[in-house]
Write a protein that binds this DNA or RNA. Structure first.
Lengths: 174, 174
DNA sequence: GGGTACATGTAATCAGTTACATGATTTA
DNA sequence: TAAATCATGTAACTGATTACATGTACCC
């Protein structure tokens, strides 16, 4: 089961696909898309077109298997291979020290000289709304979530609270 | 001064270039690179190759002017045109409601099922270090910074503190 | 039975990354 | 003067985004 072209570079998108396939057992790109939309979106976006392209790349690398419907839509269904599961687990077992960027458009505007007042108002509102969504989700389904997902959601809530605080201060000052 | 090909899409990178040129008056890509490294980096990365490519795009669109050295290195120096300054100011005057993604590699690992304990340890350490850098910078030069930059730095500090708190809890639990 | 929303995918483009390459300065 | 290091840039690649396109099911 070795000897495959094991030389692709795996990006975060790759691991998202691998990780979601590990949970789902198997899935079509469209199913991946719905899972992404209902879980990871908001803290890590993946374009739906990527969910068609990336599994193909991974299939070429032997990390997932591809099965195509005979009739009709000729849907493709993907599942992890042993090599894929290994790659995922190797990555998961090696805690990253990398920390991402903040990359908030609002903060960029502030940095580049926008008026703090109106910007703070818009941003506080937007973050408050996002926070409310997270809180609602946490309250309704938090109990049945897998650990990783719930923890990530809680991180999102903590950060959004911080942003609301931050912009509120600027709003009152302006 | 109109009639220029005013149909490029401006990305965050574009506004970074426009904004930094507005501050600097004029600059070569290399100078832009150093400014980026000493200010915005950490909350919004720009690859140095982009600082060569992007000004050219903007020049084609008439938003910056390009002047090239005759002798030696044939360095290119860029400056805002009136159209460029206008584009920048139009953007700055329109507070964005967009909020970015979190996009933390560590959070992605957590979400996809990594062991919280060791991950939390690595991440808490990394964020603590970043926080210390920000705090040092704030203490030494915070007073002389432009407002936007100081405010952005303070946002970075607030967020890093939150991350340290978040991972510390997970670390103790694990 | 026509519209509208969901489902499913491909193609073209482009921003961004990585890699390469060489010129100028400093320093040991 | 050799070796680093800083300065300066280009080329190639590719992941990601945008746009397009069509099929299917439901509902009014």
């Amino acid at each position: 089961m070795d000897g495959l072209p094991e030389n692709v570079k795996l990006t975060p998108t790759s691991y998202i696909v691998l990780g979601l396939l590990a949970r789902a057992g198997e899935a079509t790109p469209y199913q991946l898309k719905t899972v992404v939309a209902s879980s990871i979106a908001g803290f890590w976006t993946v374009q739906h077109a990527q969910l068609y392209a990336e599994p193909q790349r991974l299939a070429r690398a032997g990390l997932v298997s591809e099965r195509q419907e005979e009739g009709g839509r000729r849907r493709r269904t993907y599942a992890l291979t042993d090599a894929g599961r290994e790659a995922l687990e190797r990555w998961l077992a090696e805690p990253t020290e990398a920390i991402g960027e903040i990359r908030q458009p609002g903060l960029l505007q502030l940095f580049l000289g926008a008026e703090p007042g109106p910007l703070a108002q818009a941003q506080r509102a937007a973050h408050a709304e996002r926070l409310a969504q997270y809180e609602a989700l946490h309250e309704t389904t938090g109990a049945h979530m897998e650990d990783g997902m719930r923890l990530a959601l809680e991180a999102g809530m903590a950060l959004e609270r911080e942003w609301v605080r931050y912009w509120a201060v600027l709003e009152e000052a302006g």
